[in-house]
Design a protein around this nucleic acid. Structure first.
Length: 420
DNA sequence: TCTGGGGTCCTAGGACCC
DNA sequence: TCTGGGGTCCTAGGACCC
C-alpha cells in the first residue's frame, strides 16, 4: 500500500444472511410466503441438541428474538414463530455468487465471512463513478440478480467501512468518513464497536466508558495499562485508526482447520467417543489435503454435559496429512485427558501448517507412507465424485454415527474450499 | 430433549537452553 | 553456599469475530 493514497473501501454485509437466503430459495421453489416478511428464524434441530437461533427476520427481531438464543426461548417470546432448518450448501452457493458479482467492480475483494466482504474501490471511479453511486449500483445489482438485500458501508479503511454497514438496515448505503466519526460513530454505545465483546464491556463501564466517543477520548496510557494490547487496538478503532489492506485473491492463508460436533446424546464410553473423533478426523484430514497442507499440531476439545470445555494438543515429530496418523494422535490425546464424564460435544483441529509438496516426492523410508497417501487421495476423489457415503469405514456400518462429521451437516458434499 | 460451529489472536506459565 | 536472566518452545485457556 502506497502512503498518502486515500483509499476507498466498501464493506458489503448481507441483511439477515441465512434467513434471506432461505427466503429467496423458497420463493424460487414456488412458495408464496416470504420468510422475511413474517416472524421467522433459521434454527438448528432441538432433537439433536442444536436448537438455537442462527438467523432471524426483521419481524422476529421486533419480538426481541436474538441470534444464539434457544428456540425454546424464542418460541416463548413469539409462539407463532416460523422455524426453518439451515441448508448450508445453499448458503455457500449464495455467498459465492455474491463474491462473483463484487469482483465485477474491483479485482480486490476479500471474503470476511460467508455474508461479509471488503472491496477496495480505490482507483475504480473512472469505471463506475463516485463511491456512493457505485455502492448503490452494486447493491441493486445483487438484489436484481440474486434476490437478497445488502448493506454497504463506505470509508477510507476497513474498520470504518464495517462500522458504516452496520448503521440502519436493510438495503442501505452509508458512509463513515473520518470527518464523520464524531457525529456518526462516537454517540454509539461502546459495545457496538468492532472487537468490544462481552468480557470487555464491563471493564470499560467500570472506567466510566459508555460510548465509543468516551473510549476515543480516554487516555490511551490508562487503557493500555488495564486492557493491554487489546485496549490499544479498540482505542485506535474508536478513533477510526486502522490501515490493514483488503486482501484479495488467495492472499489469505489458513492457520488451522477444525471440525466439531454436538452429539445428539451424551457419550459415556470410550469406544463411541473414538468413533465420533474418527468421523471428525476424516473431515478435517480431507480438508487439510484439499488445502495442500500438512500439519504439525493436532488438538482435540471436549465439552462435557456441564458445558465445561477443555482441550488438549500435541506437537507432532513429523508433519503429516494422513488421516490415520492424525487419528492415532487424536485418540492418544483424548485418552490422556478424558476423565470418563459424560460428553456433549467433541472437536478435532489441526494447525501449524507446512506445504505438502515435499512429501509428494519424498525420500521417506517409511514403507507405508506413500501407499497411505495414495489411499487417502483416492478416497478423497471418490467421495468428491460420488458423495461422502460412497466410501466409509466398516466401523460406521451399523452405528448411528455419521462416517464424516462437522459443520456442513446433511448437505452431501460441500465445496471443500468453502469457509462454512 | 434448553444452550452451534467455524475461525484468529493474545497471554501466561513451565520447561529448557545458554 | 549464594545468586541470575534472557530467549524460545510448548501447552492451556480466554477473548473476540461471523
Amino acid at each position: 500500500m502506497k502512503k498518502n493514497t486515500k483509499r476507498i473501501i466498501f464493506h458489503i454485509d448481507v441483511n439477515s444472511a441465512f434467513l434471506s437466503w432461505e427466503a429467496v430459495y423458497r420463493l424460487q421453489q414456488g412458495e408464496t410466503l416470504d420468510l422475511r416478511t413474517i416472524p421467522s428464524v433459521v434454527g438448528g434441530d432441538p432433537k439433536s441438541r442444536r436448537g438455537i437461533v442462527l438467523a432471524k427476520s426483521i419481524p422476529a427481531k421486533h419480538y426481541k428474538i436474538q441470534t444464539g438464543e434457544t428456540l425454546y426461548a424464542a418460541l416463548e417470546k413469539c409462539p407463532h414463530l416460523k422455524i426453518v432448518s439451515p441448508s448450508y450448501g445453499l448458503y455457500v452457493r449464495c455467498s459465492n455468487a455474491m463474491v462473483e458479482i463484487l469482483k465485477e467492480y474491483s479485482p480486490i475483494v476479500q471474503r470476511f465471512s460467508a455474508d461479509e466482504c471488503f472491496l477496495d474501490y480505490t482507483g475504480m471511479e473512472p469505471h463506475f463513478g463516485e463511491p456512493e453511486a457505485a455502492a448503490r449500483r452494486i447493491k441493486n445489482h445483487i438484489y436484481r440478480e440474486l434476490g437478497f438485500t445488502v448493506n454497504i458501508g463506505i470509508s477510507t479503511n476497513k474498520l470504518l467501512a464495517k462500522m458504516a454497514s452496520d448503521f440502519k438496515k436493510p438495503d442501505q448505503v452509508h458512509t463513515l468518513f473520518p470527518w464523520e466519526i464524531p457525529k456518526k460513530m462516537w454517540p454509539l454505545p461502546v459495545e457496538e464497536l468492532f472487537m468490544v465483546g462481552r468480557a470487555t464491556v464491563p471493564k470499560l463501564h467500570k472506567m466510566r466508558i459508555f460510548t465509543i466517543g468516551d473510549l476515543a477520548n480516554y487516555d490511551p496510557v490508562h487503557i493500555r495499562h488495564r486492557l493491554k494490547s487489546h485496549g490499544i487496538m479498540i482505542w485506535q478503532y474508536a478513533n477510526g485508526i486502522e490501515d490493514s489492506a483488503v486482501r484479495g485473491g488467495n492472499a489469505i492463508e489458513m492457520k488451522g482447520i477444525g471440525n466439531s460436533t454436538t452429539i445428539a446424546f451424551d457419550v459415556e464410553d470410550r469406544k463411541t467417543a473414538h468413533k465420533i473423533l474418527l468421523s471428525l478426523t476424516e473431515t478435517v484430514a480431507m480438508r487439510l489435503r484439499d488445502a495442500g497442507y500438512c500439519c504439525r499440531l493436532v488438538a482435540i476439545s471436549i465439552k462435557n454435559s456441564d458445558f465445561y470445555t477443555y482441550s488438549h494438543q500435541r506437537k507432532l515429530l513429523a508433519a503429516t496429512d494422513a488421516t490415520g496418523r492424525i487419528y492415532q494422535t487424536v485418540r492418544e490425546i483424548f485418552d490422556e485427558v478424558w476423565q470418563g464424564e459424560k460428553i456433549r460435544h467433541l472437536g478435532v483441529r489441526v494447525s501449524d501448517f507446512c506445504s505438502n509438496e515435499f512429501f509428494q516426492h519424498s525420500l521417506f523410508d517409511e514403507a507405508d507412507l506413500e501407499k497411505t497417501r495414495a489411499l487417502d487421495q483416492t478416497i478423497d476423489r471418490i467421495r468428491l465424485k460420488y458423495g461422502t457415503k460412497s466410501v466409509m469405514r466398516a466401523s460406521f456400518l451399523y452405528s448411528d454415527i455419521k462416517p464424516l462429521s462437522g459443520g456442513v451437516g446433511q448437505d452431501d458434499f460441500p465445496p471443500m474450499s468453502s469457509i462454512l
